[in-house]
């Protein structure tokens, strides 16, 4: 197993492209190192991206923020400006692991680990975040929901990796929120999760919304029907019931040690309702 720590994005892409065997990109390592220890993977090459220029920076861009792929969730959580604009995203990232893990774990890593239960991913999808992908060719921008392909699998091609995630600008009177269900209160993995991002007009009517669900399908689901259920409403009970129903209808979960199909389907709707209420309040709506 080789370990490389390139200084440029081009070098990193070259290393990853040239390796014929199994490669892993090392950011915070909170997934890769655990997989190594558990014997789940024996990579031939590990490319540490933490020395790449700008990879650990948060930069304002086009009214939003570009988050470097090696920005730890702890660093993200300490950024008051990001927190003010995208509180749901920051909270979601902040739920991952322990305090120690927070100092290493990254949103880009969470996205590339491609677990349907990753906490940062539904919030990023609801936020309409865009990943910048480097590789052998020119850099390309990809909506985050298009990155995971299934449990543990991404749509990234050979030699490609994420260098940053753009959280876009957002209109006034907007809010987002993320909730997950875990049997405990922390240090756990989502059994089901929901993220809601929405924008209100001056009358408190929802004019735009995105709803994403985690741990209820092979990949995080962006649920257009759920968004449609609350757009044009003031999030009254009927709208919330329709939102929950649309979310449950979009679920295609599995029975496993963490929860049943029945439970995940039901609770995804419950979480979506609760997250929508929080997002609505954050947007300045009177719930």
């Amino acid at each position: 197993m080789r370990y490389e720590k390139p200084q440029t994005v081009a070098d990193a892409a070259r290393l990853l492209t040239a390796e014929k065997g199994i490669t892993r990109v090392l950011g915070g390592g909170t997934d890769v190192l655990v997989q190594l220890k558990a014997g789940m993977v024996e990579p031939d090459l590990i490319v540490d991206i933490k020395a790449l220029p700008g990879i650990r920076a948060i930069v304002a861009e086009a009214g939003g923020f570009r988050i470097g792929a090696a920005v730890s969730n702890a660093q993200l959580g300490e950024d008051a400006a990001v927190r003010a604009m995208w509180p749901g995203v920051v909270e979601a990232a902040g739920l991952i692991g322990s305090t120690q893990v927070q100092g290493r774990a990254t949103m880009a890593g969470n996205l590339c680990n491609a677990s349907p239960a990753g906490d940062a991913v539904p919030a990023l999808v609801a936020a309409g975040a865009v990943a910048r992908v480097a590789g052998p060719g020119a850099a390309r921008d990809v909506p985050v929901e298009a990155i995971p392909a299934g449990p543990g699998k991404t749509t990234l091609k050979r030699g490609e990796f994420i260098t940053s995630i753009l959280l876009p600008a957002r209109p006034a009177k907007s809010g987002d929120a993320y909730l997950r269900f875990i049997p405990r209160t922390e240090m756990d993995i989502a059994v089901a999760s929901a993220a809601v991002s929405l924008t209100l007009n001056d009358h408190g009517v929802i004019t735009a919304a995105r709803v994403a669900l985690g741990a209820v399908a092979p990949t995080v689901r962006l649920v257009d029907d759920a968004a449609a259920a609350i757009i044009g409403t003031k999030l009254h009970d009927d709208a919330l019931a329709a939102l929950a129903a649309a979310c449950s209808a979009a679920c295609a979960p599995i029975d496993d040690k963490r929860g049943t199909i029945e439970f995940r389907t039901e609770v995804a709707g419950v979480l979506a309702k609760r997250a929508a209420r929080i997002a609505y309040t954050r947007a300045g709506g009177q719930a």
């Binding site: 049997p183 209160t185 922390e186 993995i189």
Partner: peptide, 16 residues
């Protein structure tokens, strides 16, 4: 056994 680790064998954490 499907849960031979503290992630899925859930002992209480302090905040519980």
């Amino acid at each position: 056994m499907q849960n031979p680790g503290f992630l899925d064998y859930r002992v209480p954490v302090a905040s519980d």
